[in-house]
Design a protein around this nucleic acid. Structure first.
Lengths: 165, 165
DNA sequence: TCTTGACTGTTATGATATAACATAAGATAG
DNA sequence: CTATCTTATGTTATATCATAACAGTCAAGA
């Protein structure tokens, strides 16, 4: 069994059925409360859907589930909820996959890097504060004022690299 | 005047009309020759189009220009040429913009980070070998086998930050 | 209670990307 | 030099991702 604790710097790609998902959801709710965010039913459910997912989900996959549960059936419903979560640090957008994933550590502000497995499509979130600092320095060097950054890596997750590929 | 030399770690976002563009094209051709790549007319012209551009270009913008010059008129024409260039290190894909940009230093293998200006949409390429090493270490720590990575930052370029915004 | 602003939902459309197949152009073995 | 194989180019058609614009809803405060 791999180490799935937050201290290991990453989170299991499959949150479902684990107490992890509930812990993360609780963190997210706490954070929303503190920040005065309105975690409405669609938004909350969207976050749960991301937490239940294996790997990242596309907006239309999220929409399917929402629609099946009586929420709106049209793309903006999913995009709005997802954008809300991303803007407020409760989820991340994975550009390489045109997909979204729940933030593994919504309790703390942090810079994340994403490790995307080519074989099983899992996405693990690694802390990237150091890399972000380095990037900030590089930006400073050319007079660029950095607002935010995205770091995405593609390769094989541990399980797939070990022959389960 | 800012320092546009390769040693400064970035390249002017506007290659047009400068000797830079021609120098880069020459580098790219040399590299293609060495590597036995077939830099066919569409591919070469696609690279030139990227080099002439201010900032990154979307595939459909490239396609427009190609079509206007008698090449194919349908999306796959542009996507194939662009993917060829990207796969062979002659161009980069900027995921955040759904766009492509010529590689500023096709002569050397290098890891790049992209600094994207929110105000003027320019894209400058910074060396990111250090960051990539750090990312590799973080990946190792969780047993992830890294194949390649993307680092994209959003903010304000020097010119825009200095009030020309 | 009335108004206001934020949220949810819809229709419609726009933007990005690829699958599948037909033709043409280069390389190579005979 | 030509038959064949491979790579590249071009097409039609369609899939996938994302947003603009507007209508209805609902809670909170004047």
């Amino acid at each position: 069994m791999t180490d799935h604790s937050p201290e290991a710097g990453f989170c299991c790609p499959d949150h479902s059925g684990t107490s992890q998902a509930q812990a993360i959801l609780a963190q997210a709710e706490a954070r929303a409360r503190e920040a005065g965010l309105r975690l409405t039913p669609v938004r909350r459910r969207t976050l749960e859907i991301l937490l239940e997912a294996h790997g990242a989900l596309g907006a239309y996959e999220v929409l399917e589930r929402l629609a099946a549960e009586g929420y709106g059936t049209q793309p903006p419903v999913a995009y709005r909820a997802l954008n809300f979560l991303v803007e407020n640090g409760l989820a991340h957008r994975i550009r390489r996959l045109n997909a979204f994933t729940a933030c593994a550590q919504p309790a703390h502000e942090h810079r994340a890097a994403f490790l995307i497995c080519e074989s099983c499509d899992s996405v693990t979130e690694a802390r990237a504060d150091g890399m972000t600092r380095a990037l900030g320095a590089a930006a400073d060097a050319v007079g660029f004022v950095l607002a935010r950054s995205t770091i995405e890596a593609v390769g094989l997750c541990r399980a797939c690299a070990q022959g389960r590929a």
